[in-house]
Amino acid sequence: MKVHILAFGITKDIVGGSTFEFQIEEGSNVGQLKKHLQQQYPAFEDLASLAIAVNSEYASEELVIKAADEIVLIPPVSGG
């Protein structure tokens, strides 16, 4: 299934845009998505951390993704 992903900060530079679509298997969880993303974009592995938010909440690796979810890449935050 196709999911819609938003990218911020350095992840935006890595994927080359602030939104993109990504193909994952039905029933994939956040951990699996992250692994596929790291395969597609090896630069993610160089980051100090990469969290994924689903529908505006930090998501655990076990959370199963649905097609309509809003998925957001959260590289190391640096507010303040």
């Binding site: 590289p75 640096s78 507010g79």
Partner: peptide, 23 residues
Amino acid sequence: LKETVPIWKKEIFEDGEVWVAAH
């Protein structure tokens, strides 16, 4: 806030720019 809030800052130098804390 510095650990959890999804806000990112980019430092702009005279000769380049860098996303803070990314690496």
